[in-house]
Every structure is written in structure tokens, then in C-alpha cells.
């Protein structure tokens, strides 16, 4: 049952991504990328990850607002698609090489839903006892793997600093 739902949602996501990349209108392609993100959020809910579903749906809304703010006030909504031969050929060669590697790996991948790692039982058993949090994901990201969250905060700070520095000077001059 879960395979059918996942395959159906993935096919819709592939269709949405193709429309988003091939459409001539920038506004409609941004709307299609929003459709892909919302289907992904519903899929996370089916795969028993409610934390990720909440974060994904909120982030998707904010990304749509930022992208529409960046493109819709510009005067170029339609554009000419100039395609060059050289990057296209490089891309085809790279993807062929990559898919050969992927097919040779696919024989060793286990069936969907049968994978289990040893560290899973440790986190589930000790996470509740040692931290007292009923939500095991929170106890993993803030207690067992706190260094990850520290690095993530640093990356967020640096990227926001970069965006502000890029945009501030011209607005102040005027």
C-alpha cells in the first residue's frame, strides 16, 4: 500500500519539476515548484515523519514568498530560451556515467521498508530515559547531536550575513 502511494506522489513530483523547468513563464514555474514542495510535505506525513512535514510546509510558504518577491516586480516575466550545445552534451555524458554507477549499486540495495540500522535501537531506548523528552527527534538533534545544531546555526548566521551585505549598500546610498 505504501509503495503505491509513494510511487504515485513521486510521479506527480517529477511531472511538476518538469513543468517548472520547461515553462516559458517565470511566474507559473515558481507556482509549479510550490506544488512539488507541498506534495513532498504530504509524502513526509505518510512516511511517519510529522516533524519534517511541519517544517517543510512552513519553509515552502516562505520560499514561495521570497521567490515571488524577487521575480514578479521585475519586468521580465517571459524570456527567450537560448540553448547552447556544449553544456547540454556535458550534462548528457555526466548523467550517463552517473546512471551506470547507480544501476550497478541498485543490485545491492535492500528492499524498501526492510532497512534497519543498529544505532536506531540505541537512540529509541536511551533517548527517552536520558533526556526525558517524549519526542525522540528533538532529543537527537538537541542532546545527542548538539554539534550538528551548532554548526547549522553558524551556517544560517553566515548566509544571512552574506545576503544582507550584498543588498544593503545600494539601498543606503539612495
Amino acid at each position: 500500500m505504501i509503495e503505491v502511494i509513494t510511487s504515485l506522489f513521486l510521479i506527480f513530483m517529477i511531472l511538476g519539476a518538469l513543468i517548472a523547468l520547461e515553462s516559458r513563464d517565470l511566474f507559473s514555474s515558481i507556482i509549479s515548484i510550490g506544488v512539488v514542495g507541498f506534495i513532498l510535505s504530504a509524502l513526509f506525513l505518510f512516511l511517519k515523519a510529522p516533524d519534517i512535514a511541519i517544517v517543510q510546509i512552513v519553509i515552502e510558504i516562505l520560499t514561495l514568498v521570497i521567490l515571488i518577491r524577487a521575480t514578479i516586480s521585475r519586468d521580465v516575466c517571459f524570456y527567450e530560451d537560448t540553448r547552447e550545445f556544449f553544456p547540454f552534451a556535458v550534462n548528457i555524458i555526466f548523467l550517463l556515467l552517473f546512471s551506470i554507477i547507480f544501476i550497478s549499486v541498485l543490485k545491492y540495495m535492500p528492499e524498501f521498508g526492510e532497512i534497519s540500522s543498529k544505532v536506531r535501537e540505541f537512540y529509541l531506548k536511551e533517548g527517552f530515559k536520558k533526556t526525558g523528552a517524549a519526542n525522540i527527534v528533538t532529543s537527537v538533534i538537541l542532546d545527542f547531536r548538539g554539534y550538528d545544531t551548532l554548526g547549522e546555526a553558524t551556517v544560517l548566521f553566515t548566509s544571512i550575513l552574506g545576503a544582507v551585505t550584498l543588498l544593503r549598500r545600494r539601498a543606503k546610498n539612495e
Binding site: 512516511l47 511517519k48 515523519a49 516533524d51 519534517i52 519553509i59 516562505l62 529509541l124 527527534v137 547549522e152
Partner: peptide
Amino acid sequence: AVDPLPQALVLTSIVIGLA
């Protein structure tokens, strides 16, 4: 229960994607 470790990694990765 399902594996909580990939969920924790992806939760970090999504916010970095927005930034």
C-alpha cells in the same frame, strides 16, 4: 518505531536550504 536519525539530519538540512 521508524529510524529517528535521518529525520534529525533532514530537519537541519531543510532550514539550511532556505538560507
